[in-house]
Simulated assay, not measured.
Amino acid sequence: MKIPIIRKGEYDIWSMRMRQYICHTDHNLWDVIVNGDLKEEPVPTGETSAPPAPKTAKQLAARRNQERVKSILLLAIPDEYLLKFHNVADAKSLCEAIKISWSLDKAYDRFQKLISQLEVHGALISKEDINQKFLRSLPSSWNQIALIMRNKPDIDEIDIDDL
């Protein structure tokens, strides 16, 4: 079977295909995404080293599964987006990051379509108003970034594509 590659605007279909692919490969791999990271001793606060090496056969198998799923997910991402995701720690977090990123792209595309339709009907909307409305429409996980961007002094001059 060929790994399904995610394409713009096709997250829902891709996620169904990816689940089937992963389950077909090894059903235990899907559990890695559902249940999250390995249950190992946490790395002490302030340290940036890798997690401790697995001590048991079960931990070793779990680590291998984690790496396999993460590799499969990274192979399913087009090259232009790969740098966004390569530092994500575990497969479950990677899966969530992909979902958030593609939902943001989808929201942006819908927003652009609405703005274009308003402009076709003669509505004049300032760049500041467009930017503020878009920032308010972002998912709650983007609240901190949206707050910072909303308070930028040049928000009224930034084009939405640059935002």
Rank of each mutant, 00 (worst) to 15 (best):
L118P: 02
G36M: 04
P139M: 12
E157M: 15
D156K: 12
K133S: 15
I13W: 13
D105L: 12
M149H: 11
Q66K: 08
A62G: 08
D26N: 03
R110F: 08
W102I: 01
L163P: 09
G36F: 07
E119L: 11
R19P: 07
K70S: 04
S49N: 00
D159Y: 03
S126T: 01
D162F: 14
I98C: 02
D31G: 14
K113V: 05
V88I: 12
Y108M: 05
N87Q: 12
I5E: 00
T48L: 14
V120G: 04
I22C: 04
K55V: 08
D154E: 12
M1C: 06
F85K: 06
W30L: 02
T56V: 07
L73R: 05
Y108A: 04
R68Y: 12
I3Q: 05
R68E: 11
N35Y: 15
Q144V: 15
E40D: 13
Y21I: 05
Y11Q: 05
K127W: 10
R64G: 09
F134W: 10
Q59C: 07
I77E: 00
I13T: 15
Q144F: 15
L94V: 10
T48C: 14
W14A: 02
E80G: 00
C95I: 09
A53P: 07
I3A: 03
I145Q: 14
P44V: 03
D26P: 03
D79V: 00
I5V: 04
S71V: 08
H86L: 09
L75Y: 00
L74H: 01
L147Y: 11
E157K: 13
F134M: 11
A91S: 06
K70Y: 03
A61M: 12
D129N: 14
N87K: 10
N65G: 14
I115M: 03
E96H: 10
N28G: 03
E40V: 11
P52L: 03
E96N: 13
F134Y: 06
E47G: 00
F85S: 04
I13H: 14
C95L: 09
A91P: 04
K92I: 10
N143K: 15
R7H: 08
N131P: 03
A53R: 05
A53F: 06
